[in-house]
Simulated scan of single mutants.
Amino acid sequence: MSLQLTRKTINQHPLHYVDQGTGPVLLFCHGLLASSQMWQAQITELTKQYRCIAVDFWGHGQSKTLPERCENLQDVAKDLLDLMDTLEVSNFAVIGHGSGGAIAAEMVLMAPARVQGLVMLNSFVGFEPQVNCVKYQGFMAQVANAQAMPTALATSLTELFFSKDAMLLSQQNVALTQAIEQFNQQLTDINAVQVPPLLKFANMAIFKRDTLESVETLTLPTLIAVGLNGYLRTALESYLMHDCIDGSQLLHIDQAGHLANIEQAEFFNQHLIDFLSKVNFN
């Protein structure tokens, strides 16, 4: 069953988000080509003690537009802070995945007094390696040419988002099979209206600024998690961020790729709950 979304007008555009539970606030930020739905297993578990807010970023999920004045991930971070203002949430922890982790880091740099804890899953806050930029631009060019998500590309991208053994493991795992099918369907559902904002957001995510030196100033509790069997991010990148952020925790997730929170939901939830229990929510 899908998470139910509501919306607020932010930067003159409708931004859709999930808002469930009560207690200290957690803000979930998905990565490029994902949506708020990726956090279903976490929200189901964490709403027992937290208020969980999960956003569909511009060009993703139900947020099918993008403000004209949104030019980079810092602007996206500002829009999220505006959303939290609108919801009258002063302090919160942020859980970011992929480029959502980079946006989460921008929020901390922009409003350090408001963010109590930071989790980055399969994220990297340095420059995207050039080889990746070229590859990702090639994917986006196919979407631009088709003005939709080609079926073959959706299949290829889905394989990249899960672990290298996911297709084999899914033969004995119904839940994993469903997760793979749902993600593939989400990609194929991308339509012509959504393509221009999605492409602009993708460009912002791919060519994000390098904040590795900036995050050295962070002093808040930070958890850096990485799936060890994925295609899109490397353990080395997580080590670099762990070295830069003093006092951060590093979590390795076996048998998991980019969507490690889905593939190893119970393991990730357990460590996430443990981490959050040590965060001092004001």
Rank of each mutant, 00 (worst) to 15 (best):
M1G: 15
R7D: 09
Q12M: 11
H13N: 13
L15N: 00
Q20H: 14
Q20T: 12
G21S: 12
G23K: 05
V25D: 01
L26I: 05
C29R: 01
W39H: 05
Q42L: 07
I43E: 02
L46I: 13
T47G: 08
K48A: 08
C52T: 08
I53Y: 01
I53H: 01
D56G: 02
F57G: 01
G61S: 03
G61Q: 00
G61H: 01
S63A: 06
L66V: 07
L66D: 00
E68F: 08
C70S: 07
E71S: 10
V76I: 15
V76Q: 04
D85Y: 04
T86A: 09
V89L: 04
V89S: 02
S90V: 12
S90M: 10
V94F: 02
G98I: 03
S99R: 05
I103C: 08
A104G: 09
M107W: 00
Q116C: 11
G117R: 02
V119G: 00
F127C: 15
Q130G: 05
V134W: 12
V134T: 14
K135R: 12
G138T: 09
A141P: 08
Q142V: 14
Q142P: 11
A144S: 11
A144R: 14
L153P: 05
T155M: 08
L160D: 13
M167F: 13
Q171M: 11
L176G: 05
T177F: 08
Q185S: 13
L187T: 05
L187G: 04
T188Y: 03
Q194G: 04
P196L: 13
P197H: 09
P197D: 08
F201I: 04
F201V: 01
D210L: 06
S214A: 10
E216G: 10
P221N: 11
T222F: 06
L223Q: 01
G227M: 03
N229K: 10
G230R: 04
Y231M: 07
T234G: 07
A235E: 10
A235Y: 10
D243Q: 11
C244M: 14
D246L: 10
L251Q: 01
L251D: 00
D254T: 06
A256P: 00
G257D: 00
H258E: 08
L259Q: 02
A260C: 14
I262L: 13
A265N: 05
N269W: 02
N269R: 05
Q270W: 06
L272Y: 00
D274Y: 14
K278S: 14
K278R: 10
F281G: 04
